[in-house]
Write a protein that binds this DNA or RNA. Structure first.
Lengths: 211, 211
DNA sequence: CCGTGTGAAGCTGTTCACAGCT
DNA sequence: AGCTGTGAACAGCTTCACACGG
């Protein structure tokens, strides 16, 4: 099955909505209702959902529980994922804490790594900091599949290469650099500076609030 | 001038490249060279750049310095931007530290706010934590235009509304919720959970590394 | 009658190919 | 000769409109 990244991100949003409906013990929901409540497009929801089989009942809508289960399964959220946070600076440790705060979720920080000898051995955000050099041992040992790359831009590429060599298959990259990517590894960039600059543009565009 | 968000984000990337070339005292660069060095598409670079006037010299390429200046100006990065970080939890304080680490850049954290009385008055990441309730005074006082929303999802909407009411025009939102947006305020969502779920999908898609 | 499922239409963004300038 | 600037083809995504089934 091949899902476009845009659809994929919408699925996450749908899931969030469905979880809420499920908690509220809503059994059925129509694309209309979802669209109105969560500011989505009804047609798009239907298009997206039909990719995984026909779930809806015409004239009624979708049954919340099975749809929730199916999407959870599609996204691979029915199993636990061990992840490594590489670079335990402010961003990395914030991320580790963030994940650590939702232990019921499918993600768990299995290792926090850094190259700074000062940090190694310390507990940061409830995670023991271990040396990056042990990556290749820790990854198979703890069955780590995902990596969070939160190192300075200058060492991002080499650290990325280390992660790939250690066998990590999915990387979330916070370093503001375009990486030379390995073909089998999926990565997603989150570049805070780009986002800030985007905001700056919109400020420059319309500097004054209509008073 | 109206720039699409996609183009806008690419401009940030171009700027980064141009800054580097400028440091290396490269005077001219062609779209080809930019494309090869930074893994972009030459045609796209040209298309993007022509939106701001004709900068290139045919047969030669682009002069780095003027292009750098122009793009910097277009994105509004030739002026300082004071921003407020709202929610000084792990994510907010990491962000504050992050910005604080580049004091030469156009962005400066002018206020770190939280609603937790325990945190107020403390220094976190070099920023004094002040109460959210003072937002409406601090924003005009310190000429704050941008806000970083890093509060829990449950209070994201009300905090967003507070920011808007205080006169903030651009918001970077880390809360995993779709917000009811005010029309004049530009906001950008950064939803870490969605990114993680995206990565999980790609893992589920091809679980085994070709050995 | 109501809501899903879906081809067709419309739109946005990217790539191509080449004319035109230096 | 080389590289920009650009219309035209192309691709991907979204919206529309309606046939179909409960």
């Amino acid at each position: 099955m091949d899902i476009s990244p845009l659809t994929l991100n919408r699925l996450s949003v749908y899931l969030r909505c469905l979880r809420r409906l499920h908690e509220q013990e809503v059994a059925y929901v129509s694309s209309q209702q979802l669209a109105l409540q969560f500011h989505l497009s009804a047609a798009q929801i239907r298009k997206d959902l039909t990719q995984f089989g026909e779930f809806g009942t015409r004239g009624v809508g979708y049954r919340v529980a099975p749809l929730l289960d199916r999407l959870t399964e599609v996204l691979g959220l029915d199993q636990k994922h061990a992840l490594a946070v590489v670079g335990m600076g402010s961003l990395g440790s914030a991320f580790a804490r963030h994940i650590g705060g939702t232990p019921d979720g499918p993600f768990a920080v299995a290792a926090g790594l850094d190259s700074d000898p000062q940090k190694i051995g310390k507990q940061i955000g409830g995670i023991l900091v271990e040396p990056v050099s042990e990556l290749s041992q820790l990854v198979p040992e703890r069955d780590i599949k995902m990596g969070i790359l939160a190192v300075p831009a200058a060492v991002a590429q080499e650290t990325y290469d280390l992660l790939v060599a250690a066998g990590i298959r999915s990387i979330l990259n916070f370093a503001p650099t375009r990486l030379e990517k390995a073909p089998e590894v999926h990565s997603r960039n989150v570049d805070l500076r780009i986002y800030l600059e985007e905001l700056a543009y919109y400020l420059a565009l319309s500097p004054a609030l209509p008073a």
